[in-house]
Nucleic acid binder design. Structure first.
Lengths: 211, 211
DNA sequence: TGTACATCAGTGAACGCGCGTTCACTGATGTAC
DNA sequence: TGTACATCAGTGAACGCGCGTTCACTGATGTAC
């Protein structure tokens, strides 16, 4: 599919509205209105709403994949023996996420939401797709995580990793809503970077917790 | 509202289908079909779909809050100063959650999924409704949480609470699937009680983390 | 060169469908006199 | 006691609406001869 101006504007509008309202709550009419294109253009260029959603995913999955892989490359470069502290690992992740700007940041939130859904829907083919897509990175990550937590038994490591994943996925995917709640209750608002810097010691302490 | 058989069956079906498909993806027709009742019965008994969603949450939260309140009443008799450690609080939480519905873990997973959806989807009205509906209990819990974390600034406390909530919601809503993955990878499986006992120190250490 | 045709992005209006909701209605049960 | 009325859970069909999708169409550009 050639990326005409119309196609790009549809993808931009769809990505923004999907992130804000969810998929089924976002109509093609709202997307095409925001994009300033004709309603029929979505079905002309993408075929269906479902195909549009997949196209939006495809476009943002690529840079996210590169970010993860880049983080792992970095770990292995700075510590060739593969031994990092959990704080070093989390620190680099936080800095990598904080370095993601603008539209890609929203893409990250969408991906985290997708990650939660992928775990939730045990039978969905979406989960299998993600599992295959990120299998190599997951395994590289687990080697580093294992080296960072030599005192944990395998099953403790497994569960603490998922406790951490759950906290991070929830926080990142609901970042905008949570910040809105904070503003509602405290009349002030952290930046997303502030939240990440609060999250980091929480997770590290949890991983290091006495049993 | 008298809880006729019809009302109960609508709530049962709605709870299950909302958790499986989300709120807007679940039609009143699918709910009433699964419940074996007339389509119009939802609007007759509840007034609207929105009110049905709130009723599903209320039905689950009422016994939950009663159990929390009962546990805290009992605790205050033993420790009249009313200052609990975060470990003691989490202990009560874990036991109250596990005790809901007479140990019906499936409903617990469903509710945690609903909670995640409530944050995730455009259901901001739900959070406010629940907060108002159970204002006394909610504020009592927040006072205890505040007393348990005297060294945290309000915004740190807010975020660490939600980090904790995210971890717990993810773990509990995906409990079955995570345990299946564990069995797949380690050829052995924790009980759900084991997982809760692993989660508790993880969360407590995160809450207590140095900044 | 001009002419005829092909291709393709984009359009305007309409289509059928499923949605939440509404409303007049039924039938069972309770109550007053 | 019988009769008339009230209450209420539940029903069947229809309503209007917004949805994704479809289709005949336009107009610009490319191409063959």
């Amino acid at each position: 599919m050639a990326h005409s101006d119309t196609v790009t504007r549809i993808l931009d509008a769809a990505e923004e509205l999907f992130a804000e309202h969810g998929f089924s709550e976002t109509s093609l009419r709202s997307i095409t209105t925001q994009a300033g294109v004709n309603l029929a253009a979505v079905n002309y260029h993408f075929g269906s709403k479902k195909a549009l959603i997949q196209a939006v995913f495809s476009r943002y999955l690529s840079p996210f994949y590169k970010m993860i892989a880049g983080s792992l490359d970095h770990y292995e470069k700075i510590k060739p023996d593969g031994v990092l502290s959990i704080e070093e690992m989390l620190g680099y992740f936080v800095r990598a996420i904080a370095g993601v700007s603008g539209g890609d940041r929203r893409r990250l939130a969408i991906f985290m939401r997708l990650l939660g859904l992928a775990y939730n829907q045990g039978q969905g083919h979406l989960r299998k797709y993600l599992q295959n897509e990120y299998k190599t990175d997951y395994e590289r990550l687990m080697v580093l995580f294992t080296n960072a937590t030599p005192d944990l038994k395998p099953e403790e490591r497994f569960w603490r990793f998922h406790f951490m994943l759950g906290s991070a996925a929830f926080t990142l995917s609901n970042m905008e809503h949570l910040r809105a709640i904070q503003k509602d209750e405290f009349n002030e608002q952290c930046t997303e970077e502030d939240v990440l810097e609060l999250l980091q010691p929480f997770l590290a302490a949890g991983i290091r917790a006495a049993k």
